[in-house]
């Protein structure tokens, strides 16, 4: 019998226009659109990643970025296992905005939530407005993971999600990451012990 994948709820937070929806679209559908509908409220997408003998299903909740939507975003990060806080590396304001989002998370998010920071639009690195060291420093200070990404060029996108899985289940770390699945996933049914909702190993 096939073991159901472990469910991981991930919520994307960050200022408007930093590329939250684009990151999700790239990760889930390996697609990129220069212009997509602005997100109103939230949208949901799911994707399963294979870690050798383990499957993890990411339930990804993408939220609206404008500040006044913060009060509505709380509903979406209830019970989240992980949060990806996204900023645009070419916009200093969006980096500063992370502090507000982090405060919200601390106040309303689950206590043991895994936080990761994605510096998106890496393809525009020549106009970078936030030194990488500073971003790393800040990530460290709040105990968050950090990675640069580009939804456009597919740089580091899947890795963000792999980082989350590895942080949540350190025993995955020893396993070499499977080759990036290109749209299809080979399902390898292997019985593994049942995992709790919060911890996947």
């Amino acid at each position: 019998m096939q073991k159901a994948p472990t469910q991981v709820k991930v919520v994307l937070l960050g200022d408007s226009g930093v590329g939250k929806s684009s990151l999700v679209l790239r990760f889930v559908a390996d697609n990129f659109k220069n212009d997509a509908d602005a997100t109103i409220g939230a949208s949901y997408m799911g994707k399963i990643l294979q870690f050798n003998d383990k499957m993890i299903k990411f339930n990804i909740w993408d939220t609206a970025g404008q500040e006044r939507y913060h009060s509505l975003a709380k509903m979406y990060y209830r019970d989240a296992n992980a949060a990806i806080m996204v900023y645009d590396i070419t916009k200093r304001d969006s980096f500063e905005g992370l502090k507000r989002w982090h405060k919200e998370l601390q106040e309303f998010g689950p206590k043991d939530i895994v936080v990761t920071i994605a510096g998106n639009k890496e393809d525009l690195v020549e106009t970078e407005a936030v030194p990488q060291e500073e971003a790393k420093e800040y990530s460290k200070s709040i105990g968050a993971l950090y990675r640069k990404t580009s939804a456009k060029t597919n740089y580091g996108v899947e890795q963000v999600f792999r980082d989350i899985a590895t942080k949540m289940c350190p025993d995955l770390e020893a396993q070499a990451p499977a080759a990036r699945p290109s749209g299809t996933i080979s399902l390898q049914p292997k019985p593994t012990p049942a995992g709790g909702k919060k911890k996947c190993c």
Binding site: S16, G17, K33, N34, D35, A36, D37, A38
Partner: peptide, 10 residues
Amino acid sequence: DRDLHRTFPA
């Protein structure tokens, strides 16, 4: 301005 191109882009 950020939202103009994100209004019914299809």
